[in-house]
Design a protein around this nucleic acid. Structure first.
Lengths: 226, 226
DNA sequence: TGGGTAATAATGTGATCACATTATTAGGGT
DNA sequence: ACCCTAATAATGTGATCACATTATTACCCA
């Protein structure tokens, strides 16, 4: 038997992670139509694995089902953005606190290295790299704790915000971003729960939470029409 | 053309909601194997809609995928229970606060009527009815606000806890339950955000949050073996 | 030239089959 | 009586086809 791929047991799983990665990096613009046959052709697989992958991504609200049963990348709204920010703060601060006690000095060094990548992405104004490394920092942190229930919820929220985030960063640049990650790693080193909670909350608030009406308008005009 | 069902546009949707309802009522015991062909035969449909429905429920973590790709109703663990309680408190208090301003006196009367059903279910010791009406009270409350992002997260958490909850209630009865819903409706009537937040948090803490090690042991012995 | 209509294409859903993998059962040897 | 093994059954995945619905295009008439 040949070995088509080592990482994934099934094709639908491979397709799922490929699409997930594309969405998380913001390579799919809000409003974009996502069809089974279209993706199948793009990834050179039969429609079946794509159908299953899209069902899963839709259930995670990374994609949205229209009335006509067609799948699209959802547009951002003020209400959705508000909820994403609030929910991310609530869930990610909890996940961070549950992780803190389990983080060794080696783990901490790794987190700092990840943060360096984030800083570098900001310096060179690479929006895609910033989104990806920033996510990696957060998820790596949370994965150190027993967060198997909370993590999928957090990931769903990132999936929902990534296409919008990418669109905005492309437009207004990465200059407005501040770095609260150092504050977070310092808090972890000091085992200071309150400081960590504040650092995570500030990071979210000053990142995606700082975006408002103007950015929403940019996103709706730049994305695919409704 | 005949009209097979008025509520749902597709068969997979009908199957999804049927299974969802069964899970939410706790009719599926933790550890139970859920097979495509088995459900298809049970609901008298072809395997295809079942496959799609299971994919969706798995993505929502109502069901779990084993290493061998088979689907089961997941077992509860202490860690999972902790996270569910914490996340529910964080998300549901937010959803309630976002809903409060939009609740009219008629809406409030409706909520009180729903709470009466909950109270009655407790009185007659009907576990399934309690679980269902209690969920209905909470969701009806949250749906009054702009919670389209938060609500699916909350529903996922209920789906994850329902089979365990049912098992425990069957064993230890509904006697331990307290009613914090009146406190919640009173807070809404008074537009008292802090009181509402406390009522919701207490309701969760004194409901599923009060269950500990003994109940987890009951659940693991009563459910299907791992 | 503009708008409504018919023809055409594209899309999601569902059914069925084949196949590889895994679980279960049956049987035999010690 | 117990464990290992072979035979059998069950299961998920993927492919392909048919079909109804919906979107898009083309066309003709005013």
């Amino acid at each position: 038997m040949s070995e088509p791929n080592t990482e994934f047991k099934t094709q639908q799983e491979r397709v799922y992670f490929q699409l997930r990665e594309a969405i998380l990096c913001g390579r799919f613009v809000p409003g974009r139509a996502v069809t089974i046959r279209g993706i199948a052709e793009m990834l050179d697989v039969s429609p079946m694995p794509v159908r299953e992958a899209l069902r899963r991504l839709t259930a995670e609200h990374a994609l949205a089902l229209q009335d006509n049963r067609r799948v699209t990348v959802p547009h951002m709204t003020a209400s959705r953005l508000e909820q994403i920010v609030e929910a991310r703060i609530a869930l990610e601060t909890q996940a961070a606190l549950r992780a803190m006690a389990h983080i060794s000095t080696d783990d901490l060094a790794h987190l700092k290295a990840l943060d360096d990548q984030v800083t570098q992405a900001i310096e060179v104004q690479d929006a895609e790299s910033y989104i990806r490394t920033n996510l990696e920092f957060h998820l790596t942190l949370y994965r150190h704790g027993p967060n198997e229930v909370i993590l999928p919820l957090i990931e769903s929220l990132w999936l929902q915000s990534a296409p919008f985030m990418r669109l905005v960063l492309n437009r207004i640049g990465l200059g407005y971003l501040t770095d609260r990650h150092v504050q977070a790693t310092d808090a972890i080193a000091a085992r200071d729960a309150l400081a960590l909670k504040l650092a995570i909350a500030s990071d979210i608030r000053e990142g995606i939470g700082a975006l408002g009406q103007e950015e929403l308008e940019v996103a709706t005009t730049e994305g695919e029409p409704i």
